Simulated assay, not measured.
Amino acid sequence: MGGRSRLVRGYVAEHMAVLRSPLSVAVICGAAVARLPVIGAAVSVRTELVDSELVHATGSLSGELEELQLTLGEGPSMDVLAGARAILVNDLRDAWSVARWPMFGPQAIEAGGRGFFALPIRLGAIRVGVLALSTPVAAPLPTDAVADAWVLAELALEVLIDTGAAIDQLAGVPGSGRPEVHQATGMVSVQLGVGMAEAMTRLRARAFADGRQLSEIAADVVARRLRFDREDRV
């Protein structure tokens, strides 16, 4: 174990002691925000039903940015989950970011985000998830902080592998993940007579058209306040 790994694992252990909590994704995200120059940290994984399943987010901005990406179907975390290498964006206003994520970039900036740093959580060539760090200012993440973030991603992998179960268990806290999105996707699939991928596309399109978050649309579907008819198909 290298010196950097020992250092990071040491301050994660200190964070565990303060919280009196075992190692979890929530602890790792909390340690990231406590020690790195970021205000938000999130871990998401890819599942069979959705492109990005939020395991845990520390900081309201981080949670909002992950929700935006799920709703819009684009963003740094989505790219990393799809197979991209680490994406370190110093400023979401720069030309490359605007061209790459024309919907996510402006809305992320409006929400208060400027820097976004997404690192893959991987087991060999397999993408297990993504560690996403966010800042409210445009600035590069210092080299030492990037090195620490890689160790935190390794720790997140250990937790995900060790638990390997429900999203709530992975997060270490109740109520994480988006079970209503899974349920709504299945309901829309039945209502429209389409596959799960198409049902997710229809949910996203409705959320975008209404200017709402995907989780809000999903909650309405599950509560039967909103139904998709076959006439809604495109």
Rank of each mutant, 00 (worst) to 15 (best):
M1C: 07
R6Q: 08
V8F: 12
R9M: 07
G10M: 03
A13T: 06
E14V: 10
A17D: 13
A17L: 13
V18S: 00
V18G: 00
V18L: 15
L19G: 08
S21M: 12
A26S: 14
V27Q: 04
I28G: 03
C29G: 09
A31L: 02
A31T: 06
V33Q: 07
R35E: 15
L36M: 05
L36C: 03
I39V: 15
G40I: 08
A41I: 15
V50F: 12
S52G: 06
S52Y: 01
L54P: 00
L54H: 02
H56L: 11
A57W: 14
G59R: 07
S60T: 15
L61V: 05
S62P: 14
S62D: 15
G63S: 03
G63C: 05
E64H: 12
E67Y: 09
L72Q: 11
G73V: 11
E74M: 09
D79T: 06
L81E: 09
A82S: 15
A84C: 12
A86I: 10
V89T: 12
R93A: 12
D94E: 15
S97K: 02
S97V: 10
S97D: 00
S97P: 00
V98T: 08
V98S: 01
R100W: 05
W101P: 12
P102R: 14
P102W: 09
G105L: 04
Q107G: 01
A108M: 07
A111P: 01
G112R: 02
G113Y: 06
F117Y: 12
A118S: 13
A118Y: 02
P120H: 06
L123W: 08
A125I: 04
I126W: 14
V128N: 00
V130S: 05
T135C: 04
T135W: 03
P136K: 08
P136H: 05
P136R: 01
V137E: 10
V137M: 11
A139P: 05
A139M: 10
A139V: 10
P142T: 02
D144G: 05
A145D: 08
V146I: 14
A147L: 02
V151K: 09
L155Q: 05
L155W: 01
A156N: 04
V159W: 06
I161G: 01
T163V: 14
G164R: 01
A165G: 15
A166Q: 09
D168I: 01
L170N: 11
L170R: 13
G172N: 08
G172F: 06
P174H: 07
G175D: 08
G175E: 12
H182F: 06
Q183A: 14
Q183P: 03
T185L: 01
G186A: 04
M187K: 03
M187I: 06
Q191F: 03
L192D: 08
V194W: 09
V194P: 01
V194Y: 00
G195H: 09
M196P: 05
A197Q: 10
A197C: 00
A197S: 07
E198C: 09
A199M: 02
A199V: 01
T201Y: 00
T201W: 07
A205T: 09
R206M: 12
A207E: 10
A209H: 08
D210Q: 05
D210S: 04
R212C: 13
Q213A: 09
E216A: 08
A218F: 07
D220Y: 09
A223M: 11
R224A: 13
R224S: 13
R224I: 04
R225V: 06
L226D: 02
R230C: 00
R230D: 11
E231C: 09
D232R: 14
D232S: 15
D232I: 15
R233T: 10
R233F: 06
